[in-house]
Design a protein around this nucleic acid. Structure first.
Lengths: 191, 191
DNA sequence: CGCGACGTTGATTTGCCTCAACGATTGTGG
DNA sequence: CCACAATCGTTGAGGCAAATCAACGTCGCG
């Protein structure tokens, strides 16, 4: 099992002792999800969060008309979860599925709570993680309120520079908040 | 100095010893900001976060055309800050000002960091706080992508039930992401 | 009182959506 | 290995939600 990606990520933010590190890693469950398969679906109570090792996951909701709106992509090195469902143990309004065949480390809510008691620094790690996440969502919300679709597309290209190549256009459209048709016209119109 | 609102808020999430509680409170600076005055402006490096005791603050950005987009209202019992500027000590892209004459407890980034070392449970408190905040921003983002202005308005009424009464309509418009003119027409059209 | 901020209303415009049709590509089973 | 279905991107015609611009009434406040 290759923990190097996760450990690098961890050590960038906090320092754990050998024992703490081992305890943390021991709680992780390896999972793999094939392309187009769900990790969790809307309506289910999601049991934990995933740290993606390979492939790519996404979380999205379906609106009243059945249209997908993508909240997040999770390429390797990213965490993904429906925090609301996991933390409060309530049915999720999100779907999480794999865009490509993917592998991940999975941490249940219960295990995470136990780890927080045993390893206070881990709580610090997740606080930092979530604060950074909050910053990006606040920025994205303001961008959605103030920018045109074209500008949001360019922002997307910067945020996920590697991803833009290998992602179907309709996924990008569902992320920046336009229809696939409109994105197509936008990209093919001069200027 | 009346800490009761803050202490209630704190005790709902974590248990601190008497000494820890005192240490925490000792780091808070009382501030008051008059109506229409800034706590911090765009371009400045924001120094900390505020817990509102009375009145109401707001954070917002100005877009390329000078239009305001409101990220958050903070009535009594709410925290407000530009986390990105505070955490990373970079110039803010947000303004924070007072809608009404307001009072608050102010906690600097430096003091908060010191407190996290002395009181691990406080790090837990803020992790929980930020996770809940993240949940609401994720929901708001999805709402912005999938709902009509009318539905967003109704959501707003639920989220800030007391506030809707005393808030100028144009502030509500700047929060839900429509022009004041359109909100006016929306509210005055039957159905 | 008079000014400035706010809400209202109307005419017009526009960014983006809807629906529909049609190639191109992919992948899958016979 | 080919045939067919499914998925995706493209393009066009038309429609709608919301923006823009402008004018005007009202109110609170210095």
């Amino acid at each position: 099992m290759d923990f190097s990606l996760l450990l690098t990520h961890l050590q960038k933010n906090v320092q754990l002792s050998q024992e703490e590190e081992q305890l943390f890693l021991s709680k992780l469950q390896f999972k793999s999800v094939d392309r187009k398969q769900f990790l969790y679906q809307e309506g289910a109570i999601h049991q934990g969060m995933s740290f993606v090792i390979s492939g790519c996951l996404r979380s999205y909701s379906l609106d009243a008309n059945g249209v997908e709106h993508i909240l997040q992509f999770a390429p390797p090195g990213w965490w993904i979860a429906d925090i609301n469902s996991v933390n409060n143990q309530i049915p999720s309004s999100l779907n999480i599925d794999a865009i490509e065949n993917s592998t991940m480390f999975f941490l249940t809510h219960q295990d995470r709570e136990k780890l927080f008691v045993a390893i206070p620094q881990l709580e610090r790690f997740f606080r930092i993680l979530v604060e950074n996440s909050l910053i990006t969502y606040q920025k994205r919300l303001l961008d959605n309120m103030s920018l045109t679709a074209k500008d949001r597309y360019q922002n997307f290209c910067k945020l996920y520079p590697g991803l833009i190549m290998e992602l179907p256009q309709k996924q990008v459209a569902a992320y920046i908040g336009v229809t696939p048709e409109f994105l197509s016209k936008m990209l093919n119109s001069k200027q």
